[in-house]
Design a protein around this nucleic acid. Structure first.
Lengths: 99, 99
DNA sequence: TTAGTATTTAGATAGTTGTCTAAATATATG
DNA sequence: CATATATTTAGACAACTATCTAAATACTAA
């Protein structure tokens, strides 16, 4: 879970996820969308893979990356506990009687 | 939004959020739950506040911290776009005819 | 006003991160 | 095999982060 938050803590990596919503792409196609070197993008892809937010399949010379939604589902579950609905309507009164 | 991911990218800060689910707590009470110095916890609280995941109210000598659920709701929305339900059932076929 | 408690600010430091270039690996093709 | 393309690995470096101690600030109470 730590790896997931780490992976999401970068705009470029979040943008990569958005790119992959439509279709699977190769490492090179992903890199074309950014003004960073290919090794930099490769590193970002690696972090996203470590977090299991992506999967990759090698086909010939190419490596295709795809979204893996299962981790997002878990993250969603974590987050739900902090929404207004999940929290007690009436919190214990903060008793402060000082001046 | 960047600040939110940054704030969540730390176990201690996530634990602070969990602590505050039950009840509002003072900075000192929060610090008691961790093996870190008070300045360190104060810094974590500051980052959570910058992300608007917490609010704080000073009462006398004490500063009470509370969860702010509205940012979590936004984050939830962001995340929903990556769940299985939100994504196309049938992705464009990855055409690879090579060996 | 003086002493005590609660919290934050400042400054230092070790560790982590994002980026780059150069080189290595893997595959495809003439 | 030799060359070209796709991607990753390695190593370096500047910037950022989490932590600490010491000091400052804010409030309480005698």
């Amino acid at each position: 879970m730590n790896n997931v938050f780490k992976a999401l803590n970068d705009k470029t990596r979040r943008d990569i996820l958005e790119l992959l919503k439509k279709e699977d792409l190769t490492a090179g196609q992903i890199a074309e969308h950014f003004n960073f070197s290919k090794p930099t993008i490769s590193h970002h892809l690696d972090l996203l893979k470590q977090a299991e937010l992506l999967t990759s399949v090698k086909k010939g010379q190419f490596v295709f990356y795809s979204l893996n939604t299962t981790v997002m589902d878990e993250l969603l579950k974590w987050m739900l506990q902090f929404t207004a609905e999940a929290l007690p309507k009436i919190k214990p009164v903060t008793r402060y009687e000082g001046k």
